[in-house]
Amino acid sequence: MDASWEQRIAEFWRTADDSDSAATLQAMQDLVAGRDDPDAVYEWASVHDFLGREADAVPLYRRALDAGLRPPRRQQAIVQLGSSLRNIGRPDEAVALLSAQQPDDVVGDAARAFLALALHDSGRTEEALRVALRALAATLPLYGRAVSAYADELPTGALPARD
């Protein structure tokens, strides 16, 4: 891994500005120029996503994942791909992708948050609420068990309960 490139990418995201799309795209293009590795493809997808160009980001995320994108970017790419699919009107694809994801140290339970949104957009509101409540319950020092129990009382769907 090129530490210098990683530092420049981190600096790009610290200062990223979506008010000037052309300049932001050019800045990322300069960073990924000459690279065709999964990390560069992921960053190129991410800048499109950041600028509200989710339809352009989706095939790029898939390309990065298919090319073997590794952690920690892999987890981020899956969450961002799911979110982008939802945003371009493909919530069922987002549900299929995000329902298999587990929380981790990189993205936490973000996949569950975006899964809940995709389920809602798919008209599966009870499942959406159940997923959101279960994710929330895991963060509650008090009442987590009660919130989980209430979530379990909601109508069930195809998604299994998480431990």
Rank of each mutant, 00 (worst) to 15 (best):
T15R: 14
S99M: 12
D17S: 13
Q7D: 15
D66L: 00
L60S: 11
Q29E: 14
D18F: 13
R124N: 14
R53W: 02
Y42R: 03
W5M: 08
A22E: 10
D105Y: 06
V131T: 14
Q102S: 15
L25A: 08
L129V: 13
D37K: 04
F50N: 08
V131H: 14
V32G: 09
E6T: 08
D17C: 10
D39P: 07
R130G: 02
L98H: 07
A67D: 13
S46F: 13
L69E: 01
R124G: 11
A113Y: 15
G82W: 03
D2W: 10
N87H: 11
L85C: 03
A116C: 06
P91T: 09
D37T: 07
Q29D: 15
E6C: 07
L65G: 12
S84N: 05
M28Y: 03
N87E: 11
V47I: 11
W5R: 09
L81Y: 06
G52L: 06
A116P: 04
L129T: 10
G82E: 02
T125G: 06
D66P: 01
R124E: 15
Y42H: 13
L119I: 11
L85F: 01
F12D: 06
A113K: 11
R86M: 04
Y42S: 03
S99Y: 05
W5G: 08
D20Y: 10
F50I: 11
D30G: 06
L85S: 03
R62Q: 15
I88G: 01
R8N: 08
A94G: 02
E6D: 14
L117S: 08
V58N: 05
D109K: 04
R8K: 15
A118G: 01
A111V: 01
D17M: 09
D49K: 07
A67R: 05
A16T: 09
L97R: 04
L115P: 04
Q101N: 10
V131W: 13
W44S: 12
N87Y: 04
A16K: 12
E6P: 04
S84D: 14
M28T: 00
R130D: 04
F12L: 06
V107N: 09
L51E: 10
L25Q: 13
A118K: 01
A10Q: 10
R70G: 02
S21Q: 14
A116N: 07
H48F: 02
A94M: 05
L69K: 03
L60W: 08
I88F: 02
E126D: 15
L69R: 04
A57K: 06
A57Y: 10
L97I: 05
D17K: 07
L60K: 11
R86H: 08
A118V: 00
P71D: 13
G82P: 02
R53Q: 15
A55N: 01
V41H: 04
R8V: 03
D121M: 03
S122K: 03
I78A: 12
Q80M: 09
A64W: 08
D39C: 05
L129N: 01
E11A: 15
S4I: 11
D30F: 02
S4W: 06
F12S: 05
V79K: 07
D109G: 12
F50W: 09
A22M: 04
R53M: 09
Y61L: 00
W13R: 09
D20L: 05
